[in-house]
Design a protein around this nucleic acid. Structure first.
Lengths: 334, 334
DNA sequence: CTGAAAGCGCTAACAA
DNA sequence: TTGTTAGCGCTTTCAG
């Protein structure tokens, strides 16, 4: 592969001049630049971003760690982030942690070694990035959608408690008394807040909480739903707390021949595109994902660009979503 | 940030020894290594992957270019790829091209500058990577799911023509005579093959083809469906040739109050998890995505590891999928 | 088993 | 405006 030096030799110039001609636009004679460009083209020269980054001490690359890219929630987020970073000249290194703490740690460490300029991090562990990346020359981290310990890093999260409250209240208002929640792993901040919101509403209404815990997978959603609907006191409404769970819930309901909302009302967290296309469309709590992702990019850009910002104490920003009532909820039939 | 030299100073050793102690496991005294490890830890030392790659001339990073990560099709692919590369010690740089040729080219070029060891490429352009990355020290490229000119790169694709034939034949066999296809941009190999398969079956059956072309987006699926069902001679069956289109098709059908399969039968390409959870579940043509992605990793690993493989002429591998008949298709009601 | 030295490809002072 | 020099952090001969 041709190097800058090769181009210099071929053009009869010094490497420094070639460098200036190709990147730093100043102080180069037009004729010289033309010669350089011609030589570079004819040699098929591509600058080595590695060498450049080693010198410049910035890679123009950011890392993104998400638990699961098949989940629309994160796919949408990744897409928005990638587009926004791209616009600002940054590449994005994608890491998929599969909701595993071990994976999380290892990716954090990899990204640090690769000297990414910043990390957008959806943590799959309660204590997250603490210690690992933070210690030396702190690389800016923004926690997105989930967060670890408050106040250690910038965090952009949704008001999960509020969302759970909205969904559960909606069911209570419809007259449901046996409302079950299908939840994720308690290690995640989202799970804890969503459970808290659900519990709070149930307690206030004098109703018994029933929670099925497990991983954020369709299989868990499926198994939990079958479990819930196999007992004697079946719930009349189900609260699916994440979209991968919902996939399984719907399949189980169909397998069991349970009608929605006839036999069971269903509410779900998040609002992937396919919720609205369901039959019936799902009542859900939608989050302003796009705005949240763009704000993450904004925050990072600022920290990177302005020295003052770099020293700013971390802040936690909480976004509200909104209850979207569709056809999957109705008063209980009994 | 602490460097290897800092560790060396702190441990009272030379950089060379520290390097050997931390990576090359040979020829280092155990006591020395312990000292090095202790020093490294206390300084919070993280090796600089950039510097290492610059020397080693390999980045242990691969690039993936996909058109759209919100599409389950590519999300699944990206997940499998990331996991498999991860296992082999490779990082993955994700680029989302949004089905734009310009984006494609620019990402190819970025990946080349970053000196990724290989690229998995789902092209959004008919001529693709030709010229750009290929010219100098050829970096291995595997085209996945879509392909550009045959024979220039390794390609792992599905038999799209066969899939379209299977879906269309299924509808013809059920007695449908007015079958419309909603297709993507003709610049993509998948679109061309799917259209060819559809046309072939229609022609053989003596039926008139009707094709709605447009981008691979829910909006196009929606608009095309409304268009199809607004005329005088409405189709009795619709063939949605990609899952983003299907999202829009379903929404349009609901808005129009058209029952599936009562008023319109629906078949779709690909088999994302939510197809089966639809009401009714969708008849579709599913591809062995996982196997295809794993093979891509296999191919690349071989080319990277074995010098002989690196010189091997590119091959095109075509995978067959299978028709999955579910509830969205039935004989026409007329 | 350990150290000295050279260099991967690039850019930024500084000098000319 | 251009060239010389030095060095980013690491690994790898080659000596010791």
């Amino acid at each position: 592969m041709a190097t800058l030096r090769d181009v210099a030799v071929s053009a009869g110039l010094s490497p420094a001049t070639v460098s200036r001609a190709l990147s730093g636009a100043r102080y180069v004679d037009d004729a010289t630049r033309a010669r350089v460009v011609a030589a570079a083209r004819s040699l098929g020269y591509r600058p080595n971003a590695l060498a450049r980054a080693l010198r410049a001490k910035q890679t123009m690359t950011v890392g993104l760690i998400v638990p699961d890219i098949r989940n629309d929630f994160y796919a949408e987020t990744a897409t928005v982030l990638q587009g926004a970073f791209e616009e600002r000249g940054y590449r994005m290194l994608l890491c998929i942690s599969n909701n595993e703490a071990e994976s999380d740690r290892s990716y954090l460490s990899t990204l640090a070694e690769f000297r990414v300029d910043a990390i957008v991090y959806v943590p799959s562990t309660p204590n997250g990035a603490r210690g690992l990346v933070s210690a030396p020359k702190r690389i800016p981290i923004v926690e997105l959608l989930r967060h670890t310990e408050e106040g250690v890093y910038d965090a952009i999260v949704s008001d999960d408690r509020e969302g759970a409250v909205a969904l559960t209240s909606h069911l209570v208002a419809l007259g449901h008394r046996r409302i079950a929640m299908i939840a994720g792993p308690e290690a995640l901040s989202t799970t804890r807040y969503r459970i808290a919101g659900y519990r709070e509403v149930m307690r206030r209404a004098g109703l018994a909480a029933r929670i099925e815990r497990g991983p954020y997978t369709p299989d868990h959603g499926y198994a939990a739903t079958r479990e819930l609907l196999s007992g004697e006191t079946k719930p009349t409404a189900i609260f699916s707390s994440a979209s991968p769970l919902t996939v399984g819930v719907l399949r189980a309901l169909k397998d069991l021949g349970a009608g929605v909302p006839g036999d069971v009302s269903l509410v779900a967290f998040e609002d992937p595109e396919w919720y609205a296309a369901q039959n019936p469309p799902l009542t859900c709590y939608g989050l302003p994902l796009r705005e949240m992702a763009l704000l993450a990019v904004e925050l990072i850009s600022k920290r990177l660009a302005e020295p003052a910002e770099a020293e700013r104490a971390p802040t936690t920003l909480r976004f509200s979503g909104r209850l979207i009532v569709r056809g999957s909820t109705a008063p209980p039939s009994g």
